[in-house]
Design a protein around this nucleic acid. Sequence first.
DNA 1: GTAAGTGTTC
Length: 717
Amino acid sequence: MKGREVLVNLFEACNSGKSVAQLHSLTLKAGLAHDSFFATKLNALYAKYESLGHARKVFDETPNRTVYLWNATLRSYCRENQWEETLYLFHNMISDSRANDEKPDNFTIPIALKACTRLRALAYGKIVHGFVKKHEKVALDMFVGSALIELYSKCGQMGDALKVFNEFSQPDVFLWTSMVTGYEQNGNPEEALEFFSRMVMVGRVDPDRVTLVSAVSACAQLLNFSLGSCVHGVAIRNGFNSDLSLVNSLLNLYAKTGSVKTAASLFGKMPEKDVISWSSMIACYTHNGAILEALNLFNEMIDRGIEPNSVTVVNALQACAVAGNLEEGKKIHELATRKCFELDITVATALIDMYMKCLAPQEAFELFKRMPKKDVVSWAALLSGYAQNGMAYKSMGVFRNMLSDETQPDAVAMVKLLTACSELGILQQALCLHAYVIKRAFKNNIFVGASLIELYSKCGSIDFANRLFEGIKDKDVVIWSAMIAGYGVHGQGAEALKVFDKMVKHSAVKPNDVTFLSVLSACSHSGLVEEGIKIFNMMVREYQLKPGPEHYGIIVDILGRTGELDKAMEIVECMPNPSAPHVWGALLGACRIHNDTKLGEVAAKSLFLLDPNHAGYYILLSNIYAMDNKWEHVADLRTLIREKGLKKMSGQSVVEARGDIHSFVAGDRRHQDSDQIFGLLGTLEVKMREEGYVPDVDFQQHDMHGGCFTDLKCIKA
DNA sequence: GTAAGTGTTC
């Protein structure tokens, strides 16, 4: 055997960092270090076993570099996610720095394009594309093609991606998949599924696991259960039904489409589960109102020793937030701190949201202050959190601080701000914000538009709301729903039904679950029982929408208010997911109105399990006992509330007078003009009694208002 | 020698 062949065989057998160094010195001794073949081998082995630095040294010391050596080096940088360096090297390669070096080929281009994609360097990517077009040596093969499509779709340029795709008469599975994934990730699920079906029907190409994952995600985006099930069927037929990523995306599909049972059975049958599977299942339970199941699953996961990641923690925190379960929330906070997840801005924001929803605004604020970096989402969570805690006047200040912190609001933050303002009900503020919306060009965002309609409605200006509504040309389902809700909160149920009718009969817009929520709550507020039941049936039968916990809550409320407690209980019992607090809460409220102690106890028992720290439920039950003269039970409950340290949020009222805003809570005497105000109140009461008004004082003495006043604030509008 | 699945404010 000749020396060169011996060396080649030794290279083949090399499997560690140490032997690379030995081979290197052998190569030098043999005088073959400048042989491009060995340089390339050394380069790749150093990158694999030693370091990029060693590999680079070989590269730098080799004269007359072949394209193979270039490609090996580029690929090493690529593998280490060193995208800038990859591109820089590539740039050297094409800009003719060494006349003896070879030029890029079909293997080089996809590497360069991948670096451009990762860096979102669209402009440079176009230069690479130009290079491909100009140099006949580089053909537009499947690899180059799908790398180009990937680049364009990650940069949101699906038009350019399509142009590349159309240059192929027989696209392979990668090209098809790049298109499906591209459309799916650019928020165009319809187009993604169009390509998916063309791929199978016209292209006669079998989808692979990645195609199927993207197709399932597209169905999830569309909330299309039946289409998703079809893709599931295709996956089973193609033998991918136990692919972990695919099943995880299916879990997400069934979660988003409210198919908890399907998701749970899929989850149960999975041969292997990873942290994403567990997180997805927890999120599935949370988003479908099955809070206990969500928290149980999280705890089961911990017990089994499966390490949660930051996403799992966020999902579990959401469950606590929905349930108002501060105790669990704090436990998860501790876990998050132990694992240093608090540094993750998303986790920190989820924690703020949890504390706010658990009525612990102080804790939320402490955490917010500690955050090294804030983004628009964390600011928005704080801002809306104050509004949720009856401190909407603070939201305005938070907004100002956010602007001084050089964080610009996005549409969602704007929606939060408008919603917070609508809690205050100050028309003047509303007009200012409306002007701001126009100035900052949020006017055409449907969610902002809908919030403005809501804002005007809540400020008592239903006319302004209606004018805004009529002025919107392409009314989206969100806009219609907001107007219906606007009439609803005004107690104008008939008007709300009229708008709904107009929407259904004279517009092309189909009502969705939110629309039905608005209509149902309008019916509930105006005592339109029969209409409410009709609408509920319409939602299920005609529009085939699955009612969520909120819908069930309102229908139980509607039935409960009129004393149809049996029917209400029937609904609770046949609900697909019986553990939603809304629903039991509505039933408990109804039991209070109609003095049904027995059923009230059943509802309260469920609520104490679901949401053990919600003061309102204890107070409602205590009121029920009081009406039934069960004073021992009342006393027991009061002790329990004190022991648990629960506080009921006090209702807060705000009035606007001559540009000043005054807020106060029940029994508040801290206003400078208190004496005058209470004097007038007294006069009014006398007048009301003269007119025949009898105040409802049944629960007054048992209410828990005392001792939790919020500060009296006066802020300039 | 290519790609993909779970997350924060509604």
